[in-house]
Amino acid sequence: MIPESPALSWDGPVIELQNLCRNFGETRAVDHVSFTVPRGSVFGYIGPNGAGKTTSMRILATLGLPTSGEALVEGLSAINDPERVRSRLGFMPDSFGTYADTNCAEYLDFFARAQGLIGRERTRRLRWVMDFTGLRGLANKPIRGLSKGMRQRLCLGRALVHDPAVLILDEPAAGLDPRARIDLRRIIRSLAAENKTILISSHILTELSEMCDRVGIIEQGKLLATGTFEEIRGTLKQNREIVIRVAGETDDAMRSLQSFEDVEVLSSEGHKIHFTIHGGDQRQMDLLRSLIGAGIELLEYSSRDDSLEDVFLQITEGRVQ
């Protein structure tokens, strides 16, 4: 079990960006970004390289200043009250340095001390972090000798050592092997279950779709969509990929399908037809009813909704700045 967090008195949004802007010379890296993240939820921050994810996360982590706008953690300004915000958050950057001549235990112990933990409280947190991140067996190992996955775990341990209410994880899965990614996904879900609020960015969209409660899609500094995956998908023109297998020839089925305006046949091979249909469940039911009504003998019917990747591709245009 994870030890209980300190009293959680703030009942507003734990993370809140209000019209956040950040310019680098002529380039607007973050352009009026606003969103909120409630307590205990995992918010996925999605966007191509250079979209402004890291810039806005760093502002939230008190490591950067916005040109305008506000970044709040539990109602406290990351800009004007960074010390208060820092005690509440753990930040895991996309790249981070480590100390020479230091082993994992010394590294974690140092950050525990730096976070003001003393005596038994510190040793208890160290034990918990080592167990939680699986670093117990590597406590004496020099950091420089750790694999990428273990270094990510160590960095996560550092971010967790003071039991923060908020975690900001910038590309935590980058460079990890599949097993380490699965471990990381479990860790993040278990942290969310313990009422931690997590803001996470990743390029691996399938992973985000599995672990995030809500996502925000950002491109060229602008937040293009925000909400649950279903909410975002609901706002888009929905594409559903359908594969049917018919008894006999596919000609009749093909003719029936082509009579539908919003159907696009992708391929036909043997007794199988692969096509897409725009619309939701009702449209799909109409199609199925019509096929059966036309006397098509269906042996198999399978459909697949748009994935997060599909949604991402629909929303973004692949522009970088």
């Binding site: 982590a61 490591l63 820092r86 930040f91 950057p93 790249s95 981070f96 340095g97 480590t98 550092r158």
Partner: peptide
């Protein structure tokens, strides 16, 4: 070596 940012976001002034 990028350790400084991790340091400044602790409680250390």
């Amino acid at each position: 070596e990028q350790t400084f940012e991790m340091l400044v976001i602790t409680k250390l002034s």
